Computed example of a mutant assay.
Amino acid sequence: MDTLAPTQKLPGRGVRIAGAVYLLFWAALGISPSDRGAWLLENSLVVGLVALLWFARRAFRFSDASLYLILLFLALHAVGSHYTYSEVPYDAWWRTLTGQSLNEALGWQRNHFDRLVHFSYGLLLAYPIREFFLRVAEVRGFWGYFLPLDVTLSTSALYELIEWGAAELFGGDVGMHYLGTQGDVWDAHKDMALAGLGALIAVLVIAFINRRLKHDPAWEWSSRMKAGQKSS
Score class of each variant (00 low, 15 high):
118 H>S: 03
17 I>H: 02
35 D>H: 15
110 R>A: 10
118 H>N: 06
13 R>F: 12
192 M>C: 04
16 R>A: 03
33 P>F: 14
86 S>F: 15
69 L>I: 01
23 L>S: 08
148 P>V: 05
33 P>V: 13
25 F>Q: 06
88 V>M: 06
139 V>P: 08
188 A>C: 05
101 S>E: 03
35 D>Q: 15
181 T>A: 15
183 G>D: 01
68 Y>G: 00
81 S>R: 02
169 L>W: 13
172 G>C: 04
4 L>N: 12
41 L>N: 08
36 R>H: 05
159 Y>P: 05
36 R>V: 14
118 H>D: 01
53 L>S: 02
215 H>C: 04
31 I>K: 09
125 L>Y: 07
20 A>H: 04
64 D>G: 04
200 L>G: 13
86 S>G: 15
72 L>A: 13
219 W>N: 05
18 A>S: 12
34 S>M: 14
17 I>M: 10
116 L>Q: 00
48 G>S: 12
81 S>V: 01
143 W>Q: 02
55 F>K: 09
152 T>R: 08
115 R>I: 13
153 L>M: 10
230 K>A: 15
86 S>D: 11
36 R>G: 02
86 S>P: 12
203 V>T: 10
107 G>K: 03
143 W>A: 08
88 V>R: 10
52 L>K: 09
164 W>N: 02
158 L>P: 02
126 A>T: 03
135 R>S: 08
130 R>F: 06
75 A>L: 09
164 W>E: 01
139 V>Q: 01
5 A>W: 12
144 G>N: 05
70 I>V: 02
230 K>F: 13
222 S>F: 01
86 S>L: 15
76 L>Y: 08
179 L>H: 15
123 L>T: 00
63 S>T: 03
131 E>T: 04
39 W>G: 06
169 L>Q: 04
114 D>K: 09
205 V>H: 08
150 D>M: 15
126 A>F: 07
65 A>D: 01
125 L>I: 01
